[in-house]
Structures are given as structure tokens and as C-alpha cells.
Design a binder for these strands. Structure first.
Lengths: 202, 202
DNA sequence: GCGTTACGAGTCTGACCCGTATCGTATTGC
DNA sequence: GCAATACGATACGGGTCAGACTCGTAACGC
């Protein structure tokens, strides 16, 4: 990956140290512009510099280019994962499903759709994407395993497919607005219950 | 919407008629470039013209701009819908789920992720997107209703959520490669069966 | 104070692109 | 043959941007 802002790993500095405020302002400006509707490639270093109140050189001094900057900015965005309480398997699943595409940072929801093209075109960005979501998948996997151990879920279920079943509907709704008539707020509950019960007559 | 190629609706032509081959070449070049990895906004009229072996004026004579051209090109892409056989509800669902994101045109799979950002930023493109997928949703809805009528599916299921349950996993896998370890080929069967059975112990 | 490095702001070159216009040529109806 | 419209190619002015560079200034260790 690219080097982070060298502010951190500087052992000693002969001259003026780099401004932490500039680092922050650049990252924030990047995320703001993305959240306001700019697409990734419409985003220009010049616009970021102007928004951050920073010279272009200050950006190039820290990052090799737009891609490296974006990588760091998106890393900042991912926020913390939801933590299941561990009481009820159903409630934990509802919590995890509800957290999909809903980061601590409200800008995340606006930015996520922009990443879809990038994920399929750059191996780096695909890796970044997987690094973000794979721990979340793991979290859901553990809840499902717990459910099996506790006997709440059947032992013969396909755990990996079940995770896709829980995640997919929420993701396509939040990212793609797949079905405009589907109420997003109640969706986690409804998805979890539907997956739990199945639809076959019995 | 924008006017289609005026080749069709010309009642009589005083001069030389427009070349149908040029129409075709322009559309094909557009889809090719998108499928090769160009994002929507990185796509330039100049590149399309060069690829199509056509002058820029020939494009501007037909479309007002990139957006209008894209609208027509994507309309061409959507292809025909899968047609369920009507024998077994399960098999019909597997067919419909397997058809998600898998158009007749092999370029479709590459192009689809590019549309995610556009869908959320332009009302026009959102409408185009909905125009393409809503008849497919309707098709799935009818299969589910048929299953209820036939008594294969329970009468109290949430049809809209069930559609999201069937579509979501396939879509995030095909468009986002959500879980690299998930086998895409067997996914339709596994998703449909998981949705049919549910996961709760009983 | 001095060397060093960072700062914001700005300049400059070279791409690339848009959308229009203008070439000479080709294809139609009359 | 002739007007009309199309064609591919190319040139144009206007615009944005990347990156490297230059200012005068500011913040650090020594």
C-alpha cells in the first residue's frame, strides 16, 4: 500500500514539521467532495486543494497521486463495526444487517455507490474493499455459528449463502435503490425474519 | 427521452441518407469501450468516434451529447428477459435468479457496475435503470404469486422482501464480487433453496 | 541567527476534451 | 447535372486538469 502521512513515522525533523491540520483538512475535503456528488474521477487534486484551503504542493508532498490519497481517505471512512450484543441471534442479525452500508460517517452512504466501478477495475481497490468488508462478514459468520451451536439455527444450513442472503437485499437497496417501494428502515427486521422462516409451505 | 436515430422516422430525404452502419458502429464502439473498463465519465466522444471509425460530427448529428448517446446505447444493451417455463416454481426462480446481471450481451456484466454511481445522481438514469429492472421484478413477483396460489409457498410471506432476498445475493456477487469465495455458478440454486427452506431450527 | 523543511498561493507546460466549423468527397431525389 | 444532405477528417477556441516549479513566509533544531 501507500505510505500514510509521514507525520506519524518521522523520527526527527530537521525543519518545519508537517501540519497535522493540513492532513486532516485534505482528507476531509476529499470525503466532502465525494459525498456532495463528485464521482471519483471527476475529483481533481485542484478542487481538493481549494476546498481544503491548501496548496496543491502540500497534497503532492504527502501522496503520490489521486489514487493514493483516495485509498487513505476511504480507509478513514470505514469507521467502527457494529458489535452484536450476544443475547439473541435474531437481534444480533438484525443489528448487523441494519449496519450494512450505514457507517458512523454519514458521508459513507453517498460515497459507496461510487466505489462499485473501481472495485472491478483496480486490484488495489478491490483489496481495500475486501479488507473493509471481510471482518464484517466474519462477524456475521460467528453469529450464525453461534446460532447453530445454540440450536436456534439448523446445523445443515449453508452459512456462506446465508450471509449473502442477509447482506444482499440490504446492500442493493442502500446502494442501488433497487426497489423504490421497499421501506429501508424496516428492511433489516423483515429480511432477517424472512431468512429465518423460509417461504416454503409446510 | 431523447430522439432515437433519425434514420427511422425520416419520411423522405432530400439529400444523402444517414448511414445505418454508422449508427451501429457508434453504439457498438460505446459499449465496447465501456466493457473494456472505461467509466462513464471517462468516456469521451472523441474516443468513441475514433473507435467507431467515424467523425465526431457524425455523432453530434445524431445525439445531443454523451448522455443522450449513452441512454440509447444502454437501451440496446438490456436484451430480452428470461422466460420462466411455468412448470416448477423452484426451477422458475432458479432461472430468474440466474439471469440476474447476466444479459444476452456479455458486455453487460462489465458495464453494470459503472451504472451504480449514475443511478444515484441523475434522475434520468435512475428512471432508465428502473425501466429495465421493474419488468423483471414483476416477472419474479408473478412466479411467487403463482407459488402461493398453488400452495407451494406460504400465503403469508412478504413477497416484496422475498424478491429482494432472491435478487440481492446474486446482484452483489455479480456486480461487486462481494464474497470472492462464493461460487457464482451454483449460487442461483443455493440461494433459491435457502430462501425456500429458511434457516431456523424446527 | 542559520539551515532546513513546510506552508499557501500562484505560474507554467503539456495533455485531453468539448462542441462547432470547414474541408473535399459521396450518395440521394429530381 | 444539380441542390441537398450525408460522410470522414481535421482544425479551432475554450475549458479543465496533472504535476512540476517558483514565490515570500512560517516553524522547527541547533
Amino acid at each position: 500500500m501507500t505510505d500514510m502521512t509521514s507525520t506519524a513515522d518521522a523520527p526527527r525533523s530537521p525543519g518545519r514539521p508537517r501540519s497535522i491540520r493540513a492532513d486532516e483538512a485534505i482528507i476531509e475535503a476529499t470525503l466532502d467532495l465525494l459525498a456532495e456528488g463528485s464521482t471519483i474521477e471527476a475529483l481533481s487534486i485542484e478542487a481538493i486543494a481549494a476546498r481544503a484551503g491548501v496548496g496543491k504542493a502540500t497534497i503532492y508532498r504527502r501522496w503520490a497521486g489521486k489514487d493514493a490519497l483516495l485509498l487513505d481517505a476511504l480507509r478513514r471512512l470505514k469507521g467502527v463495526m457494529a458489535q452484536p450484543a450476544g443475547h439473541s441471534v435474531r437481534d444480533d442479525l438484525v443489528l448487523l444487517v441494519g449496519a450494512i452500508g450505514k457507517n458512523v460517517d454519514p458521508r459513507a452512504a453517498k460515497i459507496m455507490p461510487c466505489l462499485a466501478p473501481a472495485v472491478n477495475r483496480s486490484a488495489d481497490q478491490f483489496q481495500l474493499y475486501q479488507n473493509i468488508i471481510s471482518p464484517r462478514r466474519q462477524l456475521m459468520r460467528e453469529v450464525l455459528r453461534r446460532g447453530i451451536d445454540e440450536g436456534v439455527l439448523r446445523a445443515d444450513i449453508d452459512v456462506e449463502v446465508t450471509m449473502a442472503l442477509l447482506t444482499g437485499p440490504m446492500l442493493i437497496q442502500r446502494v442501488l435503490q433497487w426497489n423504490p417501494d421497499l421501506d429501508e428502515q424496516s428492511l433489516p427486521d423483515r429480511v432477517v425474519d424472512a431468512v429465518l422462516e423460509g417461504i416454503r409451505a409446510r
